[in-house]
Structures are given as structure tokens and as C-alpha cells.
Simulated scan of single mutants.
Amino acid sequence: MVKKTGRPGYLQIADELRERIRGGLLAPGEPLPSTAQLAEQFDASLSVVKMAMGILRNEGLVVGQQGKGVFVREDDQLAQDGDLRAEVTALRSAVQDLTRRLEQMEAALPAAARKAGA
């Protein structure tokens, strides 16, 4: 059920479905409930559910098949996305480390300049 938290309902629904997918409650290749079923389950309008599904499609977690429904992406597709996430995480960590080291060097420069001038 969508809660009145100030966070848009479609984001709450996308969060819940994302958790189900990542937690294994919705297996790769498994169809998601219909838009009408999800609207009833979350006590939301069809348009709100469709917006949530659009987010999951954009994230690559689900794929739609015309006339058949929306399905959880297969494992190999999710694994590739997971590899990309790991790379991005590693790059962020490296940038943070380099930023910290640069700040240390910049902090040391004025002290060295003061010693040279004395």
C-alpha cells in the first residue's frame, strides 16, 4: 500500500517491486502481476502503477513483451548490470581516495612554501 510519506506513490511502488526482484521474490523471467492487479495491491491508480513500471524498465530490471506482459529480466542481463554497478562503485571509491590525497597535498604545499621562505 502506498503510504502518505510525502514520497510520490510511483516511487514507493517502484521501490517495493525493486526489492522483490533483488530479494528473489520475483525470479528472473517471471511475469509481474498485471497493472490492474498492482493498482489494487498498492491501492493506487493505474497511471501511478504505469509510472512505477516505467522506472523499472528504465533501470533495466524488467522488460515488456507486447501482448504478454512485463517480466523480470533474465539473470545474465541482471549480472551484467551488477558488474557495471560494481565498476561504478570502484570508480567512485578511487575518485574519493584521489580527492583525499589531493587535499592532503594541497594542505602540505603552503606549509612547505612557508618553510622555504623563512
Rank of each mutant, 00 (worst) to 15 (best):
V2E: 04
D97S: 14
P8T: 07
Q77T: 05
T35C: 09
A108C: 01
G29T: 12
D83Q: 11
S45R: 14
L32D: 07
Q96Y: 08
L91D: 02
L56R: 06
A90F: 03
V72H: 03
G67K: 00
A52I: 10
D97G: 09
L84K: 02
Q41K: 14
D81Q: 15
R73M: 09
I21P: 01
E16F: 01
K115F: 03
V63A: 06
L26W: 00
L38Y: 06
A27E: 13
M105Y: 13
T5D: 07
R73C: 11
R114M: 04
G64L: 05
Q37C: 12
A112V: 15
A118F: 03
F71S: 04
T5H: 03
M53V: 15
T35M: 05
P110V: 09
T89Y: 04
M51G: 07
T35D: 06
V49L: 11
A79I: 08
A86G: 07
L25K: 13
S45E: 14
V63T: 06
K115Y: 04
V49H: 13
G24D: 04
R18N: 06
Q80R: 13
Q65P: 04
D15F: 05
L11H: 11
D83L: 08
S93C: 00
A90M: 00
V49D: 09
V95W: 06
L98R: 08
E16N: 04
V95R: 08
L17M: 12
I21Y: 02
E19P: 05
F71M: 06
S47I: 13
V88G: 02
E59T: 07
E87S: 11
Q12T: 06
G82F: 05
V95D: 06
A111I: 08
R85V: 02
V49M: 11
I55A: 12
A116Y: 10
P110M: 04
A44H: 07
F42G: 12
Q12W: 07
G64D: 10
N58I: 05
S34L: 09
K50Y: 15
K4S: 00
A112M: 10
Q12F: 12
V72L: 08
D76L: 05
N58D: 15
L56T: 03
Q96G: 07
Q104G: 10
L56F: 05
F42N: 14
R73P: 01
P110W: 08
E59G: 01
Q12P: 13
G29A: 15
R22V: 07
M105L: 13
M53I: 15
L25R: 15
T89V: 01
A90G: 00
R57F: 15
K115G: 02
D43C: 10
V48H: 08
E40Y: 13
V62S: 00
G117P: 03
G6F: 03
F42Y: 15
K115R: 14
G6A: 03
L109Y: 02
A36Y: 02
R92E: 01
R22Y: 03
E103C: 09
V95I: 14
